[in-house]
Each structure stands twice: as C-alpha cells, then as structure tokens.
C-alpha cells in the first residue's frame, strides 16, 4: 500500500449551526482525490481545518504520520493550499506577491512559475485588485503550484476560468504529479476535473462524509438498463430508480444483473452512468 500522508480521525467542527463530521478519511501519496458535494456541504471547512485556518472541536489530524499542532509549523512548507479567495492582496502586484510567497518556500520553483505566467499570460505588474476573477485565479495557481510542495490542496481552482485555461490546468496538474511523490486534493464542481484527474472521489453532503470511492468503483457499478419487456412491480436489488416500467437505474450492477438473469428478464441495452449523474444520485437521490 501507498503511504498515508494525511489521516483524519473522528474530526468534528461546528460553525454557527452547521456541523461538520465526524469524519474519518485518509489520503495516500501518489493519488489525486476530488472532493465533491452540494454547496454548503462542508468541503471548504474541511480543507480549512486541515490547513489549521480553523480549529476542530474534536478529533485529530495527522500529516506525514505526525499529529499536527499549532506549535510546530514546519509541515506548512510541505503543503501548498489554494483557497477560494485570497484576502489582503489587492494592493500588491504579481511580482510583489511572488517575492512574498517564494521566500517562504525553500522548494520554490521559479522556472515553473514563469512557465505558468507565460502559459496563462498573467500580467505581473498589474495590481491584484485590478485583475479579473479568472486572472486572479490563474495568478493564485501559479503562486501555489510553484511552491512545489509535496501536498497540493486546491479549493475550486477553476471556478472562474475559461475553457482553454481549465484544459491547460489539467495537463499542468498531471505533469506536476509526475514530478515525484505528490498528493493532490481538489475540491471541484467541474465534472471534467473529476473525470480526467481524480483517482478517488470523496462525496460530502450536509457536513457528513458519504464515502471515499475509487472512481471505477462508481462508474463500473451505476448502470441504466432498457428492458425488453415491462418489469414486474417487485423490488429489485441494487435498483435506485425506475424511470418507467422498462427503464431502470442500478447502483450495483452485479446484484441487479444476477437478479435479472435469475428471473430470465432480458435487457436490450445497458449504459454506464457518467460520474456527474452518479454524484447527482448520491447527493439528491434522483437524476437531475
């Protein structure tokens, strides 16, 4: 097994009347995990607690096998975190921000930073506050990736980006992973990010963890069937929706197929669901 770099045990965090957890979750070196969920599911809160930007009410977090506490902050240099919004930067330009950030990170990779600035055509002499949201996001990314830390945590990195920029980022992250032992956690609402990057998908709903799944564990099991004949009105194992008497959706293809085969019920066609359809079923229990 690959080494566990992040271990979260029985973590709980209350924010006003919202409760996150209890959450048990771990992340291994060499993997990319996408965290998905509805708005307000607690994804950003979880990442903030992980980064010690908020303190949990209960539970523990281990990084690289060590419990983290506020005394010793060496681990911070081993994680690069991209928050959704960066506060207090408005009056600095890109060059000044680079100077501030690069000093903190012994692994700062200037050529990578320049490559990203070039690729995204980021104007470094313009004040951060004067940049569009999309360009701000690109600059944040360049400042985060170039730290070349072992763990990269991205909170909705592409929300404001145009399509080519999103595509380029996928390649950048793939290349970045191939640099060596790395770990990426990405919170995202973009199906493309999940399809092309994620090895694992963490699904969250209303502060609770619904589970961590290997991607093919989901895409291989959720299927829709078009049956040859109308189905009897009895419960069928694995079936989560019947769209009409001949179309059904299963979350456990194996169970459903063995039941159908046993009853000599034939289907004309079966289709695997797309990851966004699967997530929709998990989050709202029905197709959109």
């Amino acid at each position: 097994m690959m080494e566990k770099w992040i271990e979260i045990n029985r973590l709980k965090k209350n924010v006003d009347d919202f409760q996150l957890g209890p959450i048990d979750l771990s992340f291994e070196a060499g993997t990319i995990t996408a965290i998905v969920g509805n708005n307000g599911a607690g994804k950003s809160t979880l990442l903030k607690v992980l980064m010690r930007l908020a303190v949990q009410n209960d539970g523990e977090i281990k990084l690289f096998g060590q419990l983290i506490d506020s005394e010793e902050e060496g681990w911070k240099k081993r994680i690069a975190y991209l928050p959704q919004t960066l506060l207090g930067c408005d009056s600095f330009n890109g060059n000044q921000l680079r100077e501030l950030v690069s000093k903190w990170y012994p692994t700062w990779d200037q050529p990578l930073f320049e490559q990203l600035v070039e690729m995204y055509q980021i104007p470094l002499s313009k004040k951060y506050g004067k940049l569009s949201q999309g360009v701000q996001q690109k600059l944040n990314l360049a400042l985060t990736l170039a730290r070349d830390a072992e763990i990269l945590i991205l909170d909705e990195p592409t929300a404001h980006m145009d399509i080519p920029s999103k595509q380029m980022l996928l390649d950048v992250i793939v290349e970045w992973m191939d640099r060596g032992d790395k770990l990426v956690i990405i919170s995202s609402h973009q199906a493309e990010d999940i399809r092309k990057l994620a090895d694992y998908v963490v699904v969250m709903k209303e502060g609770q963890l619904l589970g961590k799944f290997e991607k093919e564990e989901l895409t291989g099991q959720y299927k829709q069937y078009w049956m040859e004949d109308s189905l009897p009105n009895e419960p069928i194992p694995g079936v989560i929706e019947r769209k009409n008497e001949r179309i059904l959706v299963s979350k456990c293809a194996e169970e459903t197929e063995s039941y159908l085969a046993g009853k000599q019920l034939k289907w004309l066609r079966a289709k695997n669901l797309e990851i966004e359809e699967i997530i929709t079923y998990m989050l709202i229990g029905k197709a959109s």
Binding site: G30, T31, I32, L170, D171, V174, M177, D178, R195, K196, L197, A198, D199, Y200, E214, K215, E216
Partner: peptide, 16 residues
C-alpha cells in the same frame, strides 16, 4: 505514456 498521463487520457484512476 506515464501511468498518470494515460489515466487522464482514458479518464480512469491510476489504480486501474
């Protein structure tokens, strides 16, 4: 291609 690059192209996990 590296395992990671092929995984992206085929839209599957590196485990597979």
């Amino acid at each position: 291609p590296s395992i990671r690059v092929l995984s992206k192209e085929l839209e599957i996990s590196v485990i597979t």
